[in-house]
Design a protein around this nucleic acid. Structure first.
Lengths: 228, 228, 228, 228
DNA sequence: GATGAATGAGGATTCATTCAT
DNA sequence: TATGAATGAATCCTCATTCAT
């Protein structure tokens, strides 16, 4: 990992708020092309991350997969990490857009088993369709020593889970809520590993098992609260 | 002629049983220093694996940490993988020796909550004391594409869990047992991440949470069976 | 993750025929500098191979001689062997282009002494001017255990010699022809060693000696045949 | 090739002239053991050189093959080259002892064809039985840039060939004699490659071919002289 | 003498990143 | 902008040689 230069901003200018009321079309064109390039690169990155994992993915490989030169890649991303961050961010967005209903209030109002179905099914579906998301969540394998990007993603997800739990069981004290949210997320991730590693009936079985685990884990917490 | 010998055994000669009643051929007994060095190197490897994960760990870093030259490392280990294998093996041995009682039959005969305590506590303690073990179990971050060594460890652990589950719930059909064992192991791993990432009360809380999850998950399975 | 990609093609993309009437996909045409670098690197390789032989030549030394960084070398050649292959190939091409007349039919129609002159002189001249060619033909010093590249070259040359011999002495049975061709090539190689190792009059003397040897060796074979 | 230290004497004390008139047996014992070790090591070296060539042979491999430690090897040989030198020297000695009759005057008095048989047959036989000798004569593949050892061997052999030629054709001027001797040796080496690379009938064919070449090459030289 | 551990420069190769065009 | 060449430190690993025991 040479030339790591960890001192850069590692952030992408989310392109789009630079030339709003600009009469000429040229800039917009350029942005359009840029967006396309970025999408292209991110798609390539998704593929490579999936196949090799984040750490082993090489920027050159990503550029090659995207059909551009390494120089071009670095025109849009200051470094490897930034690619992961952006990709993770977009996937998260995509997740929310497409299946974001997962954590919708109406889902959380259902009885727990149905709520779990409503929440988990789209999440699982999303992850099956976007395995890159998953590859990113794994990070370098060392819990704690992960790159910023994963932390961000992780923080985001935890927050969402916690908020969902909070609406299910509003009385649980915040500290405990943290623990539970983390556990739930951990269980979800562990199960997702198994789910993604299998297919067909096996996969379904693991999905069912995940739901069982969560149901049994959360039922007492939720029920208690609700019965009040 | 570098990079030619693809045929290495990747195994360490555990040397030590060579000098019985052998008068003529030179015995291989110069292990005093060697054994120490190996231990030293493995300790260093443990540290580095912990900090950076297996994939990112460099043999030079391990040698440096051990205070020896890279050549010395390669006098004892044919390659990076062999270090991990040996380290994993020793940790496993250590695990079995010191806390191996985890899966002892008498433990499995206890009521589930006590059984979980009896099984999990030593395992958790061991992992807290030997975090390297954990780093190794994580592999390269690519589920499925891990090196042999991790697969071996994983297979071993799964087998142990399954056999324990089998003794707790003998009636569960094998296929389901597989799923449950994998889930349990996954949950354990996910929780261990959290446990190792925290300290003091937080850590204890996660330990408790893990037990809660497993208790609630397994109780119906075990109870059903036992009540028969 | 080193030492993983054992599957490389070890071949250089001779790039150049990509930019016909292709409007959309980016053409591979940035070869100006690249082509020059390749030539530079090959020249450097030629020098190093000559001085140290193929086996002992180090890629770093080649890069240094070419005045570039090792990374640059690997931008154009996937590995050491590829350099030798490309160099050998180019030299062979050069050999055929410039002095390929060696084995021209009209030469073979001459009386043997003149034929030998016509065939050998350009070959010798070429080898004196391109001693790298020679260094490559020597391989690793282990007869039989040489890399593909050398085998290819050797096979090519043997075939050419045999075919020339066949046209000179069509009646010699194939098996014998093989032996003779191999002997001739061997004698040629042995003499070339001596020729290249000397200069001026000494060199000329060895050239003459080579011709004498071949003349006396082949005369009976050829004469017999021709007199028919 | 690190630590080459080309400044050492690179010569072995031919052990034996240190303790002649010494009353105690201990020194002689030690010498005996030493000799055995040296023989052992040289035998191992012969094997390794044959299999891998001189350049690629590692001293560690030789020590291992000899069943001793690298340190022991260096107790008898100051460096790798010295091993080759000693081995070559001994083989040469052996060659002379066992089949040294090759260049015996009475052989050289025979008519050329018989003389060639008398000279070449034992030489070929010797080389077939001691392929290591051959491996050593090949050197690093770069004519001229060879190590001392090979030069020595080569010089020795050339001298012998020249002297034989001189007795066959005493009138040839020294300069020419040099050329002829070198050519003869070159032809012999080239043929030996072919001979060693084949077996059975093929091998015999190449032996015959070698004799043909030399006969035709030398006959005019020798005859001319003799007829005087 | 013998052993085997120790050394460390060097070898091939990779890869994140920069730069000239 | 895009390109592809350029960089060079870092990676894993080898091997001639030395050293403590």
């Amino acid at each position: 990992m040479p030339r790591t230069s960890r001192d850069k901003t590692t952030e992408i200018q989310t392109a789009g708020e630079t030339a709003e009321a600009d009469g000429t079309t040229a800039p917009r064109r350029r942005q359009a092309r840029g967006e396309r390039r970025i999408a292209q690169l991110l798609a390539a990155a998704a593929g490579v991350f999936c196949r090799t994992g984040y750490a082993a993915a090489s920027t050159n490989a990503i550029a090659r997969e995207a059909g551009v030169s390494p120089g071009t890649l670095y025109q849009f991303f200051p470094n490897k990490e930034a690619i992961a961050i952006e990709l993770g961010g977009r996937l998260l967005l995509h997740a929310r857009e497409t299946h974001g209903q997962a954590f919708l209030p109406q889902n959380l109002g259902l009885p727990l088993p149905e709520a779990l179905d409503a929440v988990l099914d789209p999440l699982i579906a999303f992850n099956c369709e976007n395995p890159a998301f998953w590859a990113l969540m794994h990070g370098s394998g060392v819990p704690g020593g992960i790159d910023k990007e994963h932390e961000e993603l992780h923080t985001n997800m935890t927050a969402q889970v916690r908020s969902a739990l909070h609406s299910l069981a509003p009385e649980v004290p915040p500290a405990e809520l943290d623990h539970i949210a983390n556990m739930v997320l951990g269980i979800f991730k562990a199960s997702l590993d198994l789910i993604l590693a299998h297919e067909g009936a096996q996969r379904d079985a693991y999905v069912a098992e995940l739901k069982t685990v969560l149901l049994r884990y959360l039922e007492p917490i939720v029920t208690t609260t609700r019965s009040r």
